[in-house]
Design a protein around this nucleic acid. Structure first.
Lengths: 192, 192
DNA sequence: CGTCTATTTGAATGTACTCAAAAGCGGTGG
DNA sequence: CCACCGCTTTTGAGTACATTCAAATAGACG
């Protein structure tokens, strides 16, 4: 099994010796998802932190009218979870679904706690991870509140140039918080 | 000096012995702000994590048209910072300003790194802090994207019942991402 | 080829904004 | 003590951004 991508990712923030790395990888479970398969369904409890090795998943929830709101896309080298459900072990309000054939590595909540105890350096790794996630999210809020849909779209496509290839326009609209019809009209306007 | 509130806050997540607590508090600097005073100004570098002991500060940025967008209110027992500026030691895009007479305890970035080394348990404390901050923020985004201003306002006042007393209506509007005029009209509609 | 879903198009509507101005409120100085 | 100043809140008219509903077109996949 190939843990290289994940280990390289971790090595950016903390140094592991061979034994620590071996212990860590012994806790990981590999899993493959085909396009359309669920990693997590609303109502079930999120039991794992999942690292995307290849492919892409979308995390979304359904509002009271049944409309899908995409919280995030997780491509290679990103983590996917419903953190609230994972931490509190309560029913998830999010769904996580593969939008490409996807390979992931998972660590369970209990194994993660074990890891924190045996290799406390991982507290540091995940602290940094959450710090960065927090900052990135902050930026997303600022945009949602102060930029128009057009500005958000332009910035999104610039920051994620692969979006056009890998995400459907409907999903991009959902992520930006506009209707697919409006995004379509917007694109036409920008092109013309 | 009274470190009790902060130590009690920390004790919810990690246990410190007397020596560790003493080392930690030795790194703290107390600071008082009068209403209107700045804790951080746009363009300067954020050097501290600040814990609010009493009072309230608002964190906000100015958009290209000079309009204020409030990112967050920090009342007692919350932290205030521009995390991005703190971590990267680059110029802050945010301002932090007291909206009440406020007492804070500060720890500098370098002392925080020292603390992580000497008392690694604090990695855990801040990991949990950022995890929770991340989750709370996530909820804020979901609301910004899927709820109307009216829904966001009603929820905000329910979640922060002290808002009416402690925050100006203008600041609440700014936090919700609407104009003060619109919030005023909205309140009238809700009351009628 | 047919079916299902995504995308485009258009008209009517609603939500929130801008601009402008009046009214309320709190502090300060004469 | 009250008159004035600056700032917040309210009010109203006109406008822009984005939605809903409806339907046509285009693409993807078995």
């Amino acid at each position: 099994m190939s843990f290289d991508l994940l280990l390289a990712n971790i090595a950016r923030h903390i140094s592991l010796d061979a034994e620590e790395a071996a212990f860590f990888t012994s806790l990981l479970k590999a899993r493959d998802l085909k396009t359309g398969e669920f990693l997590l369904r609303e109502g079930s409890i999120c039991k794992y932190e999942s690292f995307v090795v290849r492919g892409c998943v979308k995390t979304y929830y359904l509002d009271e009218n049944g409309f899908e709101h995409i919280i995030d896309f997780s491509i290679e080298e990103w983590w996917a979870d419903d953190l609230y459900s994972l931490l509190t072990q309560t029913a998830s309000r999010s769904n996580i679904k593969a939008i490409e054939d996807t390979a992931i590595l998972q660590i369970s909540k209990s194994d993660l706690e074990l890891l924190y105890q045996r290799v406390p350096k991982f507290e540091r790794f995940f602290r940094i991870l959450f710090q960065n996630a927090y900052i990135a999210q902050r930026e997303q809020i600022n945009q949602a509140l102060s930029a128009t849909a057009e500005e958000r779209y332009v910035l999104f496509m610039k920051q994620k140039p692969y979006a056009e290839r890998r995400f459907s326009q409907k999903d991009i609209a959902s992520y930006l918080g506009v209707t697919p019809q409006f995004l379509s009209a917007l694109k036409k306007r920008l092109a013309g």
